[in-house]
Protein backbone atom coordinates (compact mmCIF):
# COMPACT_ATOMS: atom_id res chain seq x y z
CA UNK A 1 0.00 0.00 0.00
CA UNK A 2 1.39 3.35 -1.01
CA UNK A 3 0.83 6.14 1.44
CA UNK A 4 -0.43 9.44 0.00
CA UNK A 5 -0.45 12.71 1.96
CA UNK A 6 -2.86 15.34 0.67
CA UNK A 7 -2.47 19.04 1.43
CA UNK A 8 -3.40 20.69 3.70
CA UNK A 9 -1.66 18.00 5.76
CA UNK A 10 -2.75 17.78 9.43
CA UNK A 11 0.09 17.84 11.95
CA UNK A 12 -0.72 14.38 13.29
CA UNK A 13 -0.32 12.85 9.81
CA UNK A 14 3.16 14.31 9.48
CA UNK A 15 4.07 13.21 13.00
CA UNK A 16 2.93 9.67 12.22
CA UNK A 17 5.61 9.29 9.55
CA UNK A 18 9.11 8.20 10.59
CA UNK A 19 12.54 8.47 8.99
CA UNK A 20 12.80 5.84 6.23
CA UNK A 21 9.07 5.81 5.39
CA UNK A 22 8.07 6.30 1.76
CA UNK A 23 5.07 8.38 0.67
CA UNK A 24 3.53 10.31 -2.22
CA UNK A 25 2.14 13.81 -2.18
CA UNK A 26 -1.07 15.21 -3.67
CA UNK A 27 -2.27 18.80 -3.55
CA UNK A 28 -0.17 21.96 -3.56
CA UNK A 29 3.60 21.92 -3.89
CA UNK A 30 5.30 25.33 -3.84
CA UNK A 31 8.84 25.92 -5.10
CA UNK A 32 11.26 28.09 -3.18
CA UNK A 33 15.01 28.32 -3.60
CA UNK A 34 17.51 30.66 -1.93
CA UNK A 35 16.08 33.97 -3.17
CA UNK A 36 12.45 33.05 -2.55
CA UNK A 37 13.25 32.00 1.04
CA UNK A 38 15.08 35.26 1.64
CA UNK A 39 12.33 37.44 0.15
CA UNK A 40 9.46 35.61 1.89
CA UNK A 41 11.20 36.07 5.24
CA UNK A 42 11.66 39.79 4.48
CA UNK A 43 8.19 40.66 3.21
CA UNK A 44 5.87 37.75 3.91
CA UNK A 45 4.52 34.98 1.69
CA UNK A 46 2.34 35.73 -1.36
CA UNK A 47 0.10 32.82 -0.33
CA UNK A 48 -0.66 31.01 2.95
CA UNK A 49 1.71 28.01 3.30
CA UNK A 50 0.42 26.30 6.44
CA UNK A 51 -0.05 22.57 5.88
CA UNK A 52 1.36 22.72 2.33
CA UNK A 53 4.56 21.31 0.84
CA UNK A 54 7.63 23.35 -0.07
CA UNK A 55 9.94 22.20 -2.89
CA UNK A 56 13.61 23.14 -3.28
CA UNK A 57 13.52 23.27 -7.06
CA UNK A 58 14.25 25.48 -10.05
CA UNK A 59 12.03 24.01 -12.77
CA UNK A 60 12.43 23.99 -16.56
CA UNK A 61 9.13 25.42 -17.84
CA UNK A 62 7.58 26.22 -21.21
CA UNK A 63 4.74 28.65 -21.92
CA UNK A 64 2.06 27.38 -24.29
CA UNK A 65 -0.39 30.17 -24.96
CA UNK A 66 -1.40 31.34 -21.49
CA UNK A 67 -0.49 28.13 -19.66
CA UNK A 68 2.78 27.08 -18.17
CA UNK A 69 3.99 23.53 -18.70
CA UNK A 70 6.65 21.91 -16.57
CA UNK A 71 9.29 20.03 -18.59
CA UNK A 72 11.61 18.94 -15.78
CA UNK A 73 11.53 19.69 -12.08
CA UNK A 74 14.12 17.76 -10.10
CA UNK A 75 15.21 18.89 -6.65
CA UNK A 76 18.17 21.16 -5.96
CA UNK A 77 20.63 20.76 -3.06
CA UNK A 78 18.73 21.64 0.12
CA UNK A 79 21.77 22.45 2.26
CA UNK A 80 21.86 25.98 0.85
CA UNK A 81 18.45 26.72 2.42
CA UNK A 82 19.67 25.78 5.92
CA UNK A 83 20.29 29.51 6.45
CA UNK A 84 16.56 30.23 6.30
CA UNK A 85 14.57 27.05 6.89
CA UNK A 86 14.19 26.96 10.68
CA UNK A 87 12.73 30.47 10.86
CA UNK A 88 10.70 29.75 7.71
CA UNK A 89 9.15 26.64 9.29
CA UNK A 90 8.26 28.47 12.51
CA UNK A 91 6.66 31.44 10.76
CA UNK A 92 4.91 29.86 7.76
CA UNK A 93 4.33 26.29 8.94
CA UNK A 94 4.62 24.23 5.73
CA UNK A 95 4.16 20.57 6.64
CA UNK A 96 6.62 18.98 4.21
CA UNK A 97 9.93 20.19 2.79
CA UNK A 98 10.97 18.36 -0.42
CA UNK A 99 14.59 18.47 -1.59
CA UNK A 100 17.74 16.45 -1.89
CA UNK A 101 20.84 15.91 0.21
CA UNK A 102 19.32 16.78 3.58
CA UNK A 103 19.54 19.72 5.97
CA UNK A 104 21.21 20.52 9.28
CA UNK A 105 20.52 20.59 13.00
CA UNK A 106 18.60 23.88 13.07
CA UNK A 107 16.09 22.60 10.55
CA UNK A 108 15.83 19.25 12.36
CA UNK A 109 14.93 21.04 15.60
CA UNK A 110 12.35 23.24 13.87
CA UNK A 111 10.75 20.18 12.18
CA UNK A 112 10.21 18.72 15.65
CA UNK A 113 8.72 21.96 17.02
CA UNK A 114 6.18 22.50 14.25
CA UNK A 115 5.49 18.84 13.36
CA UNK A 116 6.87 18.79 9.82
CA UNK A 117 8.97 16.45 7.62
CA UNK A 118 11.93 16.76 5.31
CA UNK A 119 11.42 14.41 2.35
CA UNK A 120 14.03 13.41 -0.19
CA UNK A 121 13.17 13.25 -3.89
CA UNK A 122 15.57 11.45 -6.25
CA UNK A 123 18.17 13.84 -7.67
CA UNK A 124 18.10 14.09 -11.46
CA UNK A 125 14.67 12.49 -11.82
CA UNK A 126 13.25 15.67 -13.34
CA UNK A 127 10.92 13.94 -15.82
CA UNK A 128 9.37 11.75 -13.14
CA UNK A 129 8.69 14.87 -11.07
CA UNK A 130 7.23 16.80 -14.02
CA UNK A 131 4.86 13.96 -14.85
CA UNK A 132 3.21 14.25 -11.40
CA UNK A 133 2.71 18.01 -11.80
CA UNK A 134 -0.78 18.28 -13.26
CA UNK A 135 -1.08 22.05 -13.45
CA UNK A 136 0.74 25.26 -12.66
CA UNK A 137 -1.85 27.07 -10.55
CA UNK A 138 0.08 30.32 -10.23
CA UNK A 139 3.52 31.83 -10.20
CA UNK A 140 4.71 34.65 -7.96
CA UNK A 141 7.54 37.14 -8.32
CA UNK A 142 8.48 35.73 -11.74
CA UNK A 143 9.68 39.01 -13.21
CA UNK A 144 11.69 39.92 -10.19
CA UNK A 145 13.33 36.53 -9.53
CA UNK A 146 13.39 34.80 -12.94
CA UNK A 147 12.19 31.28 -13.80
CA UNK A 148 14.37 29.11 -11.53
CA UNK A 149 14.02 31.31 -8.42
CA UNK A 150 10.34 32.31 -8.76
CA UNK A 151 7.63 30.85 -6.52
CA UNK A 152 5.77 28.26 -8.59
CA UNK A 153 2.56 26.81 -7.22
CA UNK A 154 2.10 23.31 -8.61
CA UNK A 155 -0.97 21.09 -8.35
CA UNK A 156 0.48 17.60 -7.97
CA UNK A 157 -0.96 14.13 -7.96
CA UNK A 158 0.97 11.27 -6.36
CA UNK A 159 4.23 13.21 -6.51
CA UNK A 160 7.06 10.92 -5.47
CA UNK A 161 8.38 8.56 -4.31
CA UNK A 162 9.40 10.68 -1.34
CA UNK A 163 11.55 9.23 1.42
CA UNK A 164 11.19 10.73 4.88
CA UNK A 165 14.82 11.63 5.50
CA UNK A 166 14.29 13.85 8.56
CA UNK A 167 11.24 13.38 10.78
CA UNK A 168 9.55 15.37 13.53
CA UNK A 169 11.02 13.10 16.24
CA UNK A 170 14.64 14.24 15.85
CA UNK A 171 15.73 11.45 13.51
CA UNK A 172 17.78 12.21 10.40
CA UNK A 173 18.81 9.44 8.00
CA UNK A 174 21.79 11.59 6.98
CA UNK A 175 23.07 11.95 10.54
CA UNK A 176 22.66 8.25 11.25
CA UNK A 177 24.26 7.31 7.96
CA UNK A 178 27.30 9.54 8.33
CA UNK A 179 28.11 7.88 11.68
CA UNK A 180 27.76 4.46 10.01
CA UNK A 181 29.88 5.48 7.01
CA UNK A 182 32.64 6.73 9.33
CA UNK A 183 32.69 3.34 11.09
CA UNK A 184 32.82 1.57 7.71
CA UNK A 185 35.66 3.85 6.61
CA UNK A 186 37.83 2.74 9.53
CA UNK A 187 37.56 -0.84 8.29
CA UNK A 188 38.17 0.24 4.68
CA UNK A 189 41.32 2.19 5.63
CA UNK A 190 42.62 -0.85 7.48
CA UNK A 191 41.93 -3.02 4.42
CA UNK A 192 43.89 -0.66 2.15
CA UNK A 193 46.85 -0.31 4.53
CA UNK A 194 46.99 -4.05 5.13
CA UNK A 195 46.83 -4.98 1.44
Amino acid sequence: MERVLTTPIPEEEARALRAGDVFYLSGLLITARDEAHKKILERGSPLPLEGLALFHCGPVVQKRGETWEVVAAGPTTSARMELFEAEFLRRFRPRVIVGKGGMGEKTLTALGEVGALYAHFTGGAGVLAAQAIKRVREVHWLEELGVPEAIWVFEVERFGPLVVAMDSHGRSLYKELSAQVERNMEAIRARIRGS
Binding site: A72, A73, G124, A125, G126, V127
Partner: peptide
Protein backbone atom coordinates in the same frame (compact mmCIF):
# COMPACT_ATOMS: atom_id res chain seq x y z
CA UNK B 1 15.79 0.55 -3.83
CA UNK B 2 13.14 3.27 -3.98
CA UNK B 3 15.78 5.64 -5.44
CA UNK B 4 16.82 3.17 -8.14
CA UNK B 5 13.21 2.43 -9.07
CA UNK B 6 12.57 6.17 -9.43
CA UNK B 7 15.74 6.58 -11.51
CA UNK B 8 14.81 3.73 -13.86
CA UNK B 9 11.24 5.04 -14.27
CA UNK B 10 12.64 8.48 -15.04
CA UNK B 11 15.04 7.02 -17.63
CA UNK B 12 12.18 5.20 -19.35
CA UNK B 13 9.96 8.31 -19.39
CA UNK B 14 12.78 10.40 -20.88
CA UNK B 15 13.36 7.76 -23.55
CA UNK B 16 9.73 7.38 -24.58
CA UNK B 17 8.99 11.13 -24.48
CA UNK B 18 12.37 12.06 -25.99
CA UNK B 19 12.95 14.65 -23.28
CA UNK B 20 16.16 15.29 -21.32
CA UNK B 21 16.83 12.75 -18.56
CA UNK B 22 17.73 15.50 -16.06
CA UNK B 23 16.98 19.23 -15.95
CA UNK B 24 20.74 19.80 -15.87
Amino acid sequence: RVQLEAILRNVEMARSGRVPICQD
